[in-house]
Design a binder for these strands. Structure first.
Lengths: 238, 238
DNA sequence: AAATAATGACTGACCAGTCAGTCAAATACG
DNA sequence: CGTATTTGACTGACTGGTCAGTCATTATTT
């Protein structure tokens, strides 16, 4: 009965990016190399697919899932509406694929960045930079906002996101924190028990920016630094 | 052109609650109540209005603004669709009024609770209890989730919420924290500069519960306690 | 009886998804 | 090589269904 809530078909082989870690594989208008890595036809087709995804991100993040018109997505991607259905089964699949393509690559970066035994403070400094530069200042911020805002009405999306992102991220962070705790860099095991508290200011900043930035902007970087300063022990008194 | 994104008429004089602190005020419409206790007719009308608001909360928080059908709201409220339009100008007004009625009264509680010179730890303990009992374990949690999820596409809502809630809450919290800092209960002024960090775990918990509770529930109370423990200085060793 | 409240069938706009038809690229053939 | 044939990506008008908002009619007060 509900239009949005249905479970959507199996995620399939998840044709993500395979190789590079962070950058989204945007092969925007590559000049048609006539000899071929791939036939000119397939290339053009892939370009279109990307254009549709890009347009979809714009529309979905401006209007939300339910209120987005595929006619608008098509117009923005400079494509006929029917073309969308050659690449994606339906509106919902398009939405899910969008999330998958944008978010997938980021997790690996985090996993690599935090799988180290540098002092916690150094790791967090690096994480702040990665977060600000690769998420907060890019369209990925909008993707995350989309997950937060559409997720509650999108069980399939929430589940995918939990499986592919949250559980991995949480595991990684928890392990990192446990090691830091054993090294005496944390006053309590509170962070180990509630790893959500580490990224909390990032989440809050994303929400805040979507709602209240025009009234009172936040300095994410400074806020995250301040937060981490409080969470980490004074590092054995001077 | 967009259906949802339009700016909505001026919020008006914000006829909120006046008197009691926490419980939602029934009888929003200015009931003259001249002679008898309350005209049976007016009372019935007010009941309907409330029923509509209650039903609207259910539907909106289950489906989101755009995907909610007023036919469903009407059915759930046991009322004909036309009746909704006797009480609210349109779908958007209904939505805004819902937020207004549910959230208005809570702010006062916070303002009162934190306008004290108890030790910060005691205040926060009390705030945790209030938050958990009056927000997290009630439908107000859903209202807040609605603001977070629909706000980005609802400039008028975000503005109302900023003016009536956020700015007041932030001012109150900031003042409280400044006093605590002057009393030496805080290690740094970080919290004074970023008061958002105090309620951060509450926000995160609300989002988390809407997305991932079925995979991995959070203990809000414990998480907030853990968080506050880290933020507050070790309170002059015992 | 007049006034007020409530109803629910109806309208018109809107939009996801379809499909018969078009055409450029790929392939087969002379 | 040039020409004929096939393929399949792409198009956009169209359909069927949905739903916000209206209003003539009916019910309930006073």
């Amino acid at each position: 009965m509900p239009k949005i809530t249905r479970a959507a078909k199996a995620p399939g082989p998840a044709r993500l990016a395979g190789a590079n870690p962070i950058s989204t594989p945007r092969r925007a208008k590559g000049t048609p190399a006539p000899s071929n890595p791939v036939g000119a036809r397939a290339r053009r087709s892939a370009e279109r697919r990307d254009a549709i995804l890009a347009a979809a991100l714009d529309e979905f993040s401006a209007r939300g899932f339910a209120a987005t018109r595929l006619d608008d997505v098509a117009r923005r991607a400079d494509v006929a509406k029917g073309t969308i259905y050659l690449h994606f089964a339906d509106k919902e699949t398009l939405f899910q694929e969008l999330i998958r393509v944008e978010i997938g690559p980021v997790v690996q970066v985090l996993e690599i960045a935090s799988h180290t035994d540098m002092p916690l403070r150094q790791v967090t400094d690096r994480l702040i930079e990665v977060f600000v530069r690769e998420v907060f200042e890019t369209r990925r911020k909008d993707v995350i906002r989309l997950i937060l805002t559409e997720g509650p009405r999108f069980p399939a999306l929430a589940e995918f996101y939990y499986r592919e992102v949250i559980s991995r991220v949480m595991t990684t962070i928890r392990a990192m924190l446990r090691r830091a705790h054993e090294r005496g860099e944390l006053r309590t095991d509170a962070l180990v028990r509630f790893p959500q508290l580490l990224p909390a200011p990032g989440i809050v900043a994303i929400i805040w920016s979507g709602l209240f930035d025009r009234f009172e902007p936040v300095d994410v970087r400074a806020m995250m630094r301040a937060h981490f300063d409080m969470l980490l022990a004074p590092g054995s008194a001077p």
